[in-house]
Design a binder for these strands. Structure first.
Lengths: 176, 176
DNA sequence: CCAATTTTAAAGTAGTTATTTTAAAACAGT
DNA sequence: ACTGTTTTAAAATAACTACTTTAAAATTGG
């Protein structure tokens, strides 16, 4: 998975994955079918074990506190992962280079995030924690938009190992 | 340039470029040396003729009005370009797959943007247009961070062809 | 018009790619 | 211990990669 994460789908050869995992080439093809199946497996694992858990906070706390904690985690953690960026979002920038099925897998996850955030923000509005006159869906889009920025920004700017300075600005934008 | 833009460096073969440009293979190698030279040429052209001009507004108007216009252009125009995303920023997500020289070319441009925005914001503070207690450099980072978000977000979300709804939130964050 | 230079098309090279095949090795159940 | 199955290593394949060479065609300058 590391190779896909760091170098992208096209720049990662099946041999790279074989070397990295220690799997046997033939049994790998029997298990996953082809390179694309292998990549989709990596996406699934990443979603289930690496990035998915980060969003659990939004499920456990579907309110402003959950959004704040989540955002703080994303903004401070973006540059601290083993590899830079996000296996999924890195591939948003090379959508045409991966299979439609894999692309759909990535986008479905983005949609799920957006929906999680939207629910939390809707509750935050009921709680009177954020501006009630704004569209929760639009605010959720804005949060995901910022997550995208964090991913790409955190990946490229090696001088900054945390971008939490933006936290107040984003939270502030939700409130008025 | 289109192939590099749409598919990324690795997923673009020299044959693709030859087909796209109509250039002769041999004369292309004589002119640009190798694939990397070709890519750097594309980066240079993109910077000079495609994306560079978009930042001219910041040079002509190094103040809040310039930043506002620039942001508006970026946020409304991100999803309207011929190809999605930005030739340069798309490659920030695959930094390891391009040459160090090309990566440096991309990062130098990012640094230049950041510096342009910083100058404009510093002037905006002198003009009393934005919060004077904030660090102009940090605010400039935030703007570039948002531009990254716009690039990646605009590339992946096909349902939204403009993300200008975020404009008010970003500008608002500068002011208080 | 002719010689010199540049451009072009096309074939060729050497390496890598994803994927398959072959056949030996390991393992399983009885 | 033997049989059937799975796993493994290694070689083979066919397509593609970046890149080079060859030699013909076009273009230039005097």
């Amino acid at each position: 998975m590391g190779a896909f994460w760091q170098n992208g789908y096209v720049a990662t050869s099946v041999s790279d994955v074989v070397r990295e995992t220690g799997l046997n080439t033939a049994s790998m093809y029997k298990e996953f079918g082809d390179k694309d199946g292998l990549f989709r497996e990596a996406l699934g694992y990443y979603r289930g074990h690496v990035i998915g858990p980060r969003y659990q906070i939004l499920r456990d706390n579907p309110n402003l506190a959950g959004v704040e904690t989540f955002l703080k985690n994303v903004l401070t953690g973006a540059a601290k992962t083993e590899y830079k960026g996000c296996l999924m979002m890195n591939h948003l920038a090379q959508k045409h280079a991966i299979s439609p099925e894999a692309a759909e897998q990535v986008e479905a996850f983005c949609a799920e995030i957006e929906s999680l955030v939207e629910t939390a923000l809707r509750n935050a509005q009921s709680d009177g924690d954020i501006a009630p006159d704004k569209d929760a869906k639009e605010l959720a889009s804005f949060i995901v938009f910022c997550v995208h920025g964090a991913v790409l920004y955190g990946r490229h700017d090696s001088k900054k190992d945390e971008i939490s300075v933006f936290y107040d600005m984003i939270i502030g934008a939700l409130k008025h």
